[in-house]
Write a protein that binds this DNA or RNA. Structure first.
Lengths: 331, 331
DNA sequence: CTGAAAGCGCTTACAG
DNA sequence: CTGAAAGCGCTTACAG
């Protein structure tokens, strides 16, 4: 391995000077910098991240905590998050959260992470408090825990929900159902609350039997659709907690030969790339998913630099995108 | 931050003893180990990965080099790879390969990586040689570069191709087309060669106008389908370089209202989870994708431990999975 | 503008 | 079985 010592020797300077020259320290002469850079290039040297990390007391690595890497939603977050982090000179490390694994703060220490993006926080999670107590910088992505203040980027469902509900009413839907996300997530809670409010404003309610809850995954949608159908044919329109759930619904419908939207209209939330496929054309509540992910990257990195800055909560707007899974109700 | 010094103080031993106790060194008394573990637990201590990495001369971090994180194929590799690596006590770092970025070996050094999984190697790539010259342990995943020997896990298309071709012949297809992967990848090359051979055995050929090449992505399939169609209606069956390409084809067909398989049959390669959706039901050549990813994790880790061991090339078998995108040709 | 020194948190021969 | 010492590759006050 070629180290800064080797470069120093070749350039005829001291090792610390190599360090300064390569980080473009202002009080190093241009001539020296040039010499050092040249030597570095000649040897194919690049700074050892581990040495630097130990020296400055922290790495440039950010952990993304996800529950389920297979989930398309997270899969779609990773690319923009990684890109933005890289642009900012940081690395992405994936951390899966499983009951079996060690407590998060210890894993953060073990991995030598500078900060963390939490994308799977439940309302009752102890993680945020633990991270805060240990002084680990973190940001909430898409979700938030009520007790612990931290930078956050989330999405405001209101506009999107208003738009789809207005559309549903206009089309004549009266029996609307929902497969909401888990009750112990801020995202699930908020979306449900907004849906109920807006429906209420239109004099519509959600019948108990037409409401389901479950994790934001494919199976929730698939099983949910079947359950709903058994209850007197099911609602004529079902609002899903997110796109992955809606995709589960769509596939279950296809399996049972139920035509969408003729028999049942389906609405998602997130507007994943897959939802735009001609094969799918899911009507959904959209927002700038890539930007949301990128923003969370910016927030952690900013927090690293200014640990005591005012906490920021950035909220992205949503809107309804009509595609092919919503029509007038069956009669 | 709590360090091994703090633990040492609390346990009333020296710092090196803490290190030994926690790594379960055989020549530390059980009593001491117990004392140290307890102190560590009390303080919420866990070994600092950076300190350890610097000390032992390398980290436990493995880089996965991908070209395109958005690509579903890679997205599906990440989860099993990550899980297996974690199981083996290693971390996954994502590295995107872009023309703009620094040479790979320098990035590996910069990231302090122990080894690398190469999943995007082209036949003419300089990366493998560079990594080899720098002594960076790496394995090929799914692809291989001819010049440089290294551990590899790949897939043998033969059985799968034989099965689908036999089926196509049985159904009466005579005008078969293909959208192959890039010519400069071993995967693309091999699949094309096998397809040509097997077709040949059946006395069938691939007409020049019915053959396309392109990156293994969605757009290749979408554009490819359109191009093929313009040429006298196109082939009655198209073999795709992989599932992502086939998915592009399927969506382009849906967009243009071309019924699959009635008008055109479509075959993929990889059997991604999405291909199994009721909405999709892609007939494809399948293999154990998760196992392939996991195996590559095992290979790098093994290589770390035994740098001079015999090089291993593990090949997984394929088979054809008939679903809903292949039928008798239109007449 | 540059060098010598100290230190980041660990591991690992070396003594005893 | 355990401690003192050295060192991994860097950065950063401290001198000059």
């Amino acid at each position: 391995m070629v180290t800064s010592r080797d470069v120093a020797r070749l350039a005829g300077v001291s090792q610390p000077t190599v360090s300064r020259a390569l980080t473009d320290h202002p009080r190093v002469s241009e001539a020296t910098k040039r010499k050092v850079r040249e030597a570095a290039r000649a040897l194919g040297y690049s700074t050892n991240a581990i040495g630097r990390a130990l020296s400055v007391g922290r790495s440039n690595r950010i952990g993304l905590v996800v529950a389920d890497l297979e989930n398309q939603f997270y899969a779609n977050m990773i690319a923009p998050l990684h890109d933005e982090l890289e642009r900012l000179g940081h690395e992405l490390v994936l951390i899966t959260e499983s009951a079996a694994s060690a407590p998060l703060p210890e894993r953060v220490a073990a991995h030598g992470l500078a900060g963390v993006v939490l994308s799977t926080t439940t309302v009752d999670s102890v993680q945020p408090a633990r991270l805060r107590d240990r002084g680990v910088p973190f940001v909430y992505l898409n979700r938030v825990a009520p007790g612990v203040r931290a930078d956050a980027v989330t999405v405001d469902p209101e506009t999107g929900v208003r738009e789809i509900v207005a559309e549903a009413v206009r089309l004549g839907h009266t029996r609307i159902g929902a497969i909401f996300g888990p009750r112990n997530t801020s995202t699930g809670e908020l979306r449900e609350q907004v849906v109920r409010e807006v429906l209420d404003e239109h004099g519509l309610g959600l019948a108990q039997r037409d409401v389901l809850h479950g994790p934001f995954d494919f199976d929730t949608g698939r099983d949910g659709f079947r359950t709903l159908r058994e209850r007197a044919g099911g609602p004529t329109l079902v609002l899903c907690g997110n796109d992955v759930v809606a995709l589960g619904v769509l596939n279950a419908a296809a399996e049972s030969g139920v035509p969408v939207p003729e028999h049942t209209s389906v609405v998602g939330f997130d507007d994943l790339p897959t939802s735009r496929w001609a094969l799918v054309r899911l009507s959904t509540i959209a927002y700038d998913l890539d930007e949301v992910a990128r923003e969370s990257a910016r927030l952690v990195v900013a927090r690293l630099r200014e640990p005591d800055a005012e906490t920021a909560h950035i909220v992205y707007p949503t809107h309804y995108v009509a595609r092919s899974t919503v029509s007038a109700p069956r009669t």
